[in-house]
Design a protein around this nucleic acid. Structure first.
Lengths: 396, 396
DNA sequence: ACCCTTTGTCCTGTGAGTGGAAAAAGTAGG
DNA sequence: CCTACTTTTTCCACTCACAGGACAAAGGGT
């Protein structure tokens, strides 16, 4: 099928497309209630959108007491690709124009294998989704990578955990391979956009998303827009000092948050505890698998293992202290905790909450929810779809 | 004289007013180069502004090779009042519409005397400025208070160092007393706006201003706009924990930055050092004045006193560590250090820089200037004038 | 003086957008 | 089934903002 390359011609059309994306099918009248345009003007713009085939007619709407109206919806053939490249795995998903996930694949993969190998993988995953009949092609793709990105160009810059990616023209390369527009961003920012679009942050305009996975990062949303900082490294909180003269970190400093708590640090601590026979639970798991990960700690904690619980609590305390500082500084309306370690669940959350509510002033914490992300592993790919749709649904 | 109550009728006029404010007198042609409007449209809007008397003709401009053009400038009779209420003193200044300071008064005053007493003082200072012939009245006033403010209403909320101000309708009260529009904001935000308008931050869009005075606060500017947070307490970094299990703080926690370094903490430390005879310089100053302040420490340091230098360095290190965290998180394009203790100068700056450059990742610090504020005590009042002018020079 | 450049004014055409009227397509009630 | 009332949609005339060209005014350089 021919892909839709059309773009909205003006801000009104862009507005309408986003309303249809976020609100699903709508009648002209319902749209009119939301956009403050005259009926005539609205009709003209809708007609033009119908001509571009970005939107299509979709039968009759329910009556609101008078004449029934004809529904309008985004073209159901539109397909976006959301790609979330993590440190140790890749998620790829197809969505429709309303950003509903139609198919989702996850595969383990080490990002350190470099962009060429990773993209080969991503493309084959995308091809698999296509082959299963979910898409005939893609109208756009949003890519998340685990490191800072020069956003306008879509190029990773000096990513600590991704040697070989520095300066690689991700956006350009993938745009060629996929044959569609591509936007690239930090994976944490994608997660923030995902939670904003379809998760817990739907109604909040200023919030933080703390992603604790292999590393630790933070997405910052200001006035509904992701804030990326001057060089694209905003939210890089993994290397904030959490413990004075603490453990050495790969970055060269000591006591970085990431060195004390993250998927990687947790696995290390658990292995150590198992080897020292501090925890039977962890030791048996180590014996069984030959290695331990955050998932094992979560399972052990769920089974009531005291050592595992202690590890989680201590990590949560460290993280909570850092977040307390950020809350004082940024005064967000919501803090979302997400990433691989959300499996640690409420033990972690409780520890973080305790530190934040204790360490920040009442004015900042008074009405501050601190919650787990709602979307889990889909947050990133939904965020990717959202990223590219925001780009495509803006005036050309 | 009758005050100008006119407001720009549309975004174009607002744009022109701001250009004239920031760029001084300009010809129609020069304005045309900056606004992307047709000459006819521009002429119409300028004529309308002339009618409202917000702008006036101002003689002929220099020739650019052809016919000389008539200059346009903001009405030279316009007057803004900038008020910076600090913890221990009040600054009041009059500016013209280009935000140039025409007169500036500073008086010591304890903010804890409460809003009524302070406003009495402010009004008498404003009256003095009027009496000296600098203004016949005020077209608007911008007020800074040392605590969080619910910005839309202009009301302080739960200010720790200003008991008695909580919920006091500052904006409304002063608007009545002064008979002109008033906007109220946190003093640190005002300082940030001042440095943005006329100081070191003129060309930067995302930056932080750290004000170290009686307390410590931080102004956050995102995309050229001050960010105030969900409840108006953004930038309240004085109570971030800088020292685990450190000194007790008035807020109830231990180890807050403000408890370890600020004008108040510095004075306390210096007094203690003097009493313990650790520094002859400080001891003699204590004897002479009966009390020590940050100014004494600055003087002692300038005289080469080792104890004073140590105090400054240690404070700078603590502050630098906190700022390093903020830099990692926020990735600003500039960090400005200001407030009462800027007298401590380059010793302080060097300590802060060391910590930030060491404690943040190269990508964030690579091209990050950390500088002292350029405007000193005028930053706040200029920021106040800027605040109200931004408000008045926006479509009604 | 003469020519060129810049500035300011005037005027008309165009296109966006509004708002009212009427037609179209329903629902609810007798 | 017919009537009265709603809501939706289309149509149309009118307003208004704005662009951009023509032209006049005012200067500089030679």
């Amino acid at each position: 099928m021919r892909r839709m390359t059309a773009r909205p011609a003006n801000a009104h059309q862009a507005r309408l497309l986003r309303l249809l994306r976020d609100g699903g099918p709508n009648s002209r009248a319902q749209l009119g209630d939301q956009v403050d345009l005259s009926r005539s003007k609205l009709a003209v713009e809708v007609d033009r959108l119908l001509e571009t085939e970005l939107v299509v007619a979709d039968g009759l709407a329910a009556s609101r007491g008078g004449r029934r109206s004809h529904n309008i919806r985004l073209n159901p053939h539109l397909r976006f690709l959301g790609v979330d490249i993590g440190a140790t795995s890749v998620d790829v998903a197809v969505t429709n124009a309303e950003l509903e996930i139609l198919g989702h694949i996850n595969q383990p993969m080490d990002v350190r294998e470099g962009p060429v190998a990773v993209f080969e993988q991503v493309l084959s995953m995308a091809a698999k989704l296509k082959a299963s009949g979910l898409a005939e092609g893609f109208d756009g793709a949003g890519i998340g990578v685990p490191g800072p990105v020069r956003f306008p160009e879509g190029v990773p810059v000096a990513p600590p955990i991704m040697p070989g990616w520095d300066g690689f023209p991700v956006r350009e390369a993938l745009s060629q391979d996929l044959g569609c527009p591509v936007m690239v961003d930090n994976d944490v920012n994608l997660m923030a956009m995902g939670e904003q679009h379809a998760g817990v942050a739907r109604t909040v305009h200023d919030f933080l998303v703390v992603k604790i996975g292999t590393g630790i990062g933070c997405g910052i949303v200001v006035g509904g827009e992701v804030y990326r900082g001057t060089t694209g490294s905003a939210g890089d909180i993994g290397h904030i000092q959490a413990v004075p003269d603490g453990r050495p970190c790969a970055c060269g400093n000591r006591g970085c948050l990431e060195a004390h708590f993250s998927g990687a640090a947790l696995a290390r601590d658990a292995t150590e505890a198992a080897q020292q026979q501090l925890s039977a639970e962890l030791a048996s798991r180590l014996e069984a698998n030959g290695t331990l990960s955050a998932v094992d700690v979560a399972a052990a904690a769920a089974a009531g293992d005291a050592t595992a619980l202690d590890l989680i609590r201590e990590g949560g305390n460290r993280t909570g202290q850092v977040i307390a500082g950020l809350v004082s500084f940024f005064n967000p309306g919501l803090v979302v905790i997400g990433g691989g370690v959300t499996g640690l669940g409420h033990t972690l959350l409780a520890a973080i909450r305790t530190q934040v509510y204790r360490g920040s002033l009442p004015l900042a914490t008074g009405n501050l929810p601190i919650v787990l992300g709602e979307l889990g592993p889909t947050a990133g790919v939904i965020g990717g779809a959202r990223l590219i749709s925001d780009h495509l649904f803006s005036p050309a």
